[in-house]
Simulated assay, not measured.
Amino acid sequence: MSFEPKTAIVTGSDSGIGRATAVALAKAGMDVGVTWHSDQQGARDTAEEIRSHGRNAVVARLDTTDLPGCADVVDALAEQLGGLDVFVSNAGTGDGQKFLDLAYDAWRTTVDTNLSGAFVCLQRAAQRMVAAGNGGRLIAVTSVHEVQPRVGAAAYTASKHGLGGLMKTIALELGSYGITANSVEPGEIATPMTDQEDTDPRSEDRPGIPLGRPGDAREIADVVAFLASPASSYVTGASWAVDGGMLQMGPQGGSHITSSEWREG
């Protein structure tokens, strides 16, 4: 099956990794649906950047805790775009609360945003792709915490573990339709979510990361753009760590930590 993507939706594309991804897909020749939750102006700025590359952009508000109604936003954007070839589930949140202190409402908000909302949107996107019969690309931006936990992130870690498992199951079930499903696992990336919106990651020292610095949102976007492209036609069910080598530091971290400060997150 020949796959030539022309349309994409990137959730949470008002800033950070989402914006960088939306722009990367526009540069690759796609019209892009942009979604925002609280930063409408940010979404408008993303749309303008997409249009500066000669592609169409449409914008809608998406609240992934609006269940199952948030899937209707996927339909509305796809209709405006004239189809849907690539869907990137990027919208997410965290709460920073330890397990013993984690209130159920906080748990539910994080899990609904990162997992349940992602599920209904991915499902709706996949249903459209199957109906169109042209194949497709489903991509989830998870986290290194898809595979490794973090103190103070019980709900976040659980939701990212779940999303990674969901993508692998989707890959098994939808391969016969020419639809691939993959995850991208960012490490520490200089974005608003990590309070580094205006930071040049190459100016920051991170001794515990082999490459010695945080990542740039565009470094995540480049991997997503590959997974959205025809070049990734034989890649499915994979989780791509884009973390500067962070995940390789487990044994070193265990043997080189010299205080109990890590217990505080």
Rank of each mutant, 00 (worst) to 15 (best):
D112S: 12
G175P: 10
G94S: 13
D112T: 09
Q97N: 12
A106H: 12
D63G: 09
V235L: 09
L227G: 08
G178W: 02
A20E: 02
A225H: 01
D14A: 15
A118V: 11
T157K: 07
I50D: 06
V23L: 11
V59C: 09
E185T: 07
G92M: 00
E49D: 15
A20W: 02
P207F: 08
I50E: 08
G245S: 02
I139L: 10
G16T: 11
R19N: 11
A26Y: 03
V88F: 00
A231F: 08
T109A: 14
A8S: 09
A241S: 07
T194F: 09
M167R: 04
R55V: 14
Q41S: 13
S116H: 05
G92V: 00
D45L: 11
M246K: 05
S260W: 15
M193I: 14
A91Q: 08
G33R: 06
R263Q: 10
E4D: 08
R124E: 05
G250T: 12
G253E: 12
V120I: 15
A131I: 04
W240Y: 13
T113A: 11
D200C: 02
L62R: 05
D63C: 13
L81R: 00
L227A: 03
M1P: 14
F226T: 13
A125L: 12
D45G: 09
R137T: 01
P192T: 07
V151R: 10
H53D: 07
E48A: 14
K98V: 15
A190N: 15
D63P: 10
I209C: 01
P5N: 06
A238S: 15
C70Q: 07
S259N: 12
S2Q: 12
G162K: 02
V147Y: 03
Q123R: 14
P251Q: 06
T65L: 02
V184T: 04
R137D: 00
E173W: 04
V144W: 06
P5K: 04
L25Q: 05
G237K: 05
Q41I: 15
V184C: 03
G69Y: 10
V141M: 07
E4N: 07
D45K: 10
G94F: 10
A132C: 13
I189K: 03
V235Q: 02
V130H: 02
T110D: 12
H161L: 05
P5L: 14
Q127Y: 04
K160R: 11
D243R: 03
T142D: 07
T194S: 13
H161R: 06
T35V: 04
L62I: 10
E173D: 15
A28G: 14
Q196R: 08
D243A: 03
A125I: 07
T142I: 14
V224T: 00
G164M: 03
G94L: 13
L67Y: 14
L122S: 15
G12L: 02
E204S: 05
